[in-house]
Nucleic acid binder design. Sequence first.
DNA 1: AAGTGGTCTAGACCACAAA
DNA 2: TTGTGGTCTAGACCACTTC
Lengths: 240, 240
Amino acid sequence: MTKSNKYKQIFEDLSEKIQDGTYKTNSILPSENELTLIYSTSRETIRKALTLLAQKGLIQKLRGKGSLVLDVSRMDFPISGLVSFKELQTSMGRDDIETTVHEFGLINADKHLGSIFDVSDDTEIWNVVRSRRIQGERIILDKSYFLKSEVPLLTKEICENSIYEYLESKLGLPIDFAKKEIIVEECKEEDRRYLDLDEYDHVVVVRNYVHLKNAALFEYTESRHRLDKFRFVDFARRKH
Amino acid sequence: MTKSNKYKQIFEDLSEKIQDGTYKTNSILPSENELTLIYSTSRETIRKALTLLAQKGLIQKLRGKGSLVLDVSRMDFPISGLVSFKELQTSMGRDDIETTVHEFGLINADKHLGSIFDVSDDTEIWNVVRSRRIQGERIILDKSYFLKSEVPLLTKEICENSIYEYLESKLGLPIDFAKKEIIVEECKEEDRRYLDLDEYDHVVVVRNYVHLKNAALFEYTESRHRLDKFRFVDFARRKH
DNA sequence: AAGTGGTCTAGACCACAAA
DNA sequence: TTGTGGTCTAGACCACTTC
């Protein structure tokens, strides 16, 4: 195990055993008391692991009964949360996605970007415009902006692969939370230029605001999708 | 306080104090140890309450520093999770929304509904079709289905107001989690009949699958929105 | 009555941030 | 060094389900 936290180790172990069928769909996991013996730990630690499993949608806790293993195969990719394009790609088993970088470089914030990032004008910002070709058609246009102060170095090569892998693994940026907004807009000139729009005159626009652990916005990405190929899945648990 | 759980009471109390400005944006909450004294409870209970606040996006926990109060005014209504139309209405300060019930009654599940609910054909299901008129225009078409076994009684009057208020407050249904799917579809005949579509030939379709605490699907709703009025906001926190 | 998960306690040690 | 949040423990009592 690589993780240091005991409850995360237990979470990952149970997660694997559910995915590989050791614990089968619609069966009940060993009780919390049994799990304390299996993993030689306290019950609260077991409960932390089970809470994670429930939040991830792998189990359903039933008071008085036990923890029910849910149908994993039915779950679509959970975009809710932060997901890079590369993750999406692999989780959907697609290898036929091509990324083309159309614009890449440093720009100075204008009024619009300045107000989004809450920084003064002429703050340096990375500007990346990419299109995604899926099964031969250019379907998605991604316009990304990163604060240079948080991302000192970026290259075109990195943008052609997964920027997030670079940001998180290499740079170790403490990404914490994101706000997504989904609306539909009329096609603009840039959509017609970079996408195969066919007859469609609207695009689905996903605006993504990504914050670091210090609560500062460090990335803003606008993802423009052709109508017919857009799909968003959200798995949400009832609060309180 | 009405809630029985201590950590929920504390969560609600802190939540109010943040929203009414007792604890100001960008300030630090009293430390966990101080809160144990304020609320006369153990630290783990305080931490449960703070975890809820963090999940709701009201605070940001910073190791070694404290719990930072986030800017509440910036947050849009968090749809992520379960939101009834009525909730949306009030949270956005709109009183000019009219609901019209077009279809209401019991039907027997066909193949399609049967597979969605995972019940045998001819299981009894409530069928409710409603349109939402906002500022004079019919913008949203809601097609809802409820398992009769879980919702014994439903009336047209209830459907004209908030079904969810009825289900949760009156019936006390233990609603637990929901899966949302958002896609774009071409307009169908029912869209043209019940909505003011103007020139639009597509609608945004939100499919909502709502489960009870026993993990059974009890509601399926298809919400069909006119393109130009659709908006979805999601506030997501990084997992582990 | 027995077993399950839900809540709560009073401690302990650790990792991190700031002075 | 001090104070913060993060993790972990061993026990307790409660609410619910099943028998």
